[in-house]
Nucleic acid binder design. Sequence first.
DNA 1: TTATTTGCAAAAACTTTGCAGTTAG
DNA 2: CTAACTGCAAAGTTTTTGCAAATAA
Lengths: 323, 323
Amino acid sequence: MPVKKFGKEIEHFHNFLRRKGKKKTYQKDLILETFLKTEGHLSVEDVYALVKKRDKKIGVVTVFRTLLSLAEEECGIARKITLGDGLTRFEHRYQHPYHHHIICTKCHKAIEFICPGLDTIQDEIIQKYDFTPSYHRFQTYGICEECRENRHVSDNTNYDTEKIFARDALKMALSMENRCLEFFKKAARCTVDPGGKKVFERMIPEEEKHISELNSKLDDLMQQEKGLDQAPIFLHFDTGELERMIPDLSKHETRGEVNLDSKAAIEMATQLNRSASEFFKKYAEKFTDTLGKRIFMNFAVQEENHCDLIRQRMESRQLSGVQ
Amino acid sequence: MPVKKFGKEIEHFHNFLRRKGKKKTYQKDLILETFLKTEGHLSVEDVYALVKKRDKKIGVVTVFRTLLSLAEEECGIARKITLGDGLTRFEHRYQHPYHHHIICTKCHKAIEFICPGLDTIQDEIIQKYDFTPSYHRFQTYGICEECRENRHVSDNTNYDTEKIFARDALKMALSMENRCLEFFKKAARCTVDPGGKKVFERMIPEEEKHISELNSKLDDLMQQEKGLDQAPIFLHFDTGELERMIPDLSKHETRGEVNLDSKAAIEMATQLNRSASEFFKKYAEKFTDTLGKRIFMNFAVQEENHCDLIRQRMESRQLSGVQ
DNA sequence: TTATTTGCAAAAACTTTGCAGTTAG
DNA sequence: CTAACTGCAAAGTTTTTGCAAATAA
């Protein structure tokens, strides 16, 4: 009995068939569902073997044809890829971020990852050649840790990319928030002007609240999918980029003391929140609709709200005459 | 009659055969030579067709087997690649820098390029996974300018990668030297201390001489291979990296005037030369032995010599009591 | 002499095509 | 009812393997 999870995908596929004047069949649905419930990089034979467990009658050719349909640009549920072993493989594409692969040439395991820095470089190069890119691929071949140490490759667990991406997005947001918290703590400690000090002190519990929210989201996710903490990193981010957003207190430092009045402190805090918001918004734009993208968008919005809140506070202070 | 150019490669291959206890045959030599004299990404059929022009008797299987030998790690003359069209292809590897591809999905033209920035990112990611990399591949698929505008794809010229790399390496070195020249000119203009001014002024003709040397090397190269200026960029470098090596004069600036005594000026000039030398040396290390690598090494050495020269001058000044 | 090569043919592996019967719209 | 789909078989591709004759060391 097909259809249960994957409602979105199946509906999307049916729409695609209707648009194309193609017919909806039991076989296509079965193949689609089998494909969706299996994470990884599947060859036609892989899918065929799985499908056959449920229906002996289905032929390889049908699997082939269906997978090719799924990989059509207008359908966009699967992506046809090559991993260097001469086989055509298919991987999930619908609401999965565009990613790269690290491939073990011994056990043929493929680790997926994304790295926005790579994409940036590629965009620059493409532009120089006046190329209209359709897709790109970064593949690294080598020997994985397990194979090198001859450990038994029992761990054939296939994780759900969407969840891993969400995990990494949460970790990245947390990393940013922790940096902010550190910054505010230091700023509160070192600022001598009482107004400025108060501004920073007030930020601390707010950041802490935000951090605990993110942490509980992460916990939820981990509980939803046990073993998720074991899955390899999917999203690689440059911590330097986060660091660069933190304002440089040392510019206002004299003998370990920071001189900022409340107005300057508010400006600095707003600036930090705004650049975080903009960074995560720009980051989110890189991805197709996924949990990870939504986490980034969410984070960006929260930071923006925080900005507004600080601005309001500032205005009300000015109105009430408090410098 | 084989053997004429490619002496190095053929000798390397024969050594490989001896080490492996394999036999040297007329067919292998012919296939190797045909492969070497043809730039590009050749399928077995491609090479077979070319080889057959010279000897009708040779079979495809021999071509297959020989190309596989050439692509063996211990031989390292060819590299087995996939360009997404389902064919196994072979490209030059011996003394060719490791590169990536931009592939037109319409005319199947593949542009090669290298980009050290990409390699840096990949190294970082690899390290996180404790992977022992053997090779990596960055492929971008899309539609090229010519195909998009439906221009006739007559330009099927295959350039010699080694020469293109050399061209780009020279251009990169020139770019660096021009920046240095600009810096010295500005420094000479703005420095008020006569000693410091003189140091910078003295650098100008030296830089100019170096630039004209590099330019004449570039001209030689261009004359050697006509149409080389038309070949697409192979080496992509981050101009920002070069820029960051130039010292920041503004730190010593007051009202458009720079205050540096001769000692400080010498230090600054030495610093600039040294960082350029180190940068290019580090850069050169990334590549296998090629003309391009040698250009970088050469450049690094020259800059180092320049450093020494400046240091000597400084010492002789100090000895002669001139501040 | 002897182990490797060659080139043919045949097989294997992967993918596409043709076709008659079946089925969704 | 008709156009699309399925599953089989058959054919096309690309790559690998087996083997007898040829050949380099």
